[in-house]
Design a protein around this nucleic acid. Sequence first.
DNA 1: GCCAACGTTGGC
DNA 2: GCCAACGTTGGC
Length: 165
Amino acid sequence: MASPRRFWLFKSEPGVFSFEDLLRARGKRTGWDGVRNYQARNLLRDDIAVGDGVLYYHSGGKAPSIVGLAKVTRAGHPDPTQFEEGSKGYDAGSDPKDPRWVQVTIQGVQALSKPLSLGDLKQERGLAGMALVQRGQRLSVQPVSVKEWRRVLQLGGVADDPTGP
DNA sequence: GCCAACGTTGGC
DNA sequence: GCCAACGTTGGC
């Protein structure tokens, strides 16, 4: 029996790569590259599977918000930018035979009818346990529980989970 | 622009 | 192995 799908929240600065950018990308897909934190890397490498659901979060700006839904279409594989000399993600210490950094591929599905700002989320009692609303939480890839996922979709005006199988 | 929180680095 | 210094994230 296949393990149940899981849910995640990915942070991105919209000025770097926004949800709109994702929807405009070829196949609405992108390699989620550039993660250079070991805890997040481990999630990408070990825990995130094809079919998992992703909340797309815009950090920074006046009202940082969850803005869209995506799904994982390819599990962890080496992040090519770690070997690109001159790129921001270049890591001279990463061995091509044993790459240090991992990406997954995600595909944009749809924007939330109602984007949910961090302020909105903090006011929801049912979401008090979300990693995102915890003080000092900086992880750019975070686990989301099924309950949190459902609540976010409900609040975001999405009736049926469009990322489902 | 400020600054709290956190992760990483490197001297010892 | 400790910990100070430094860099980054990201809300405000």
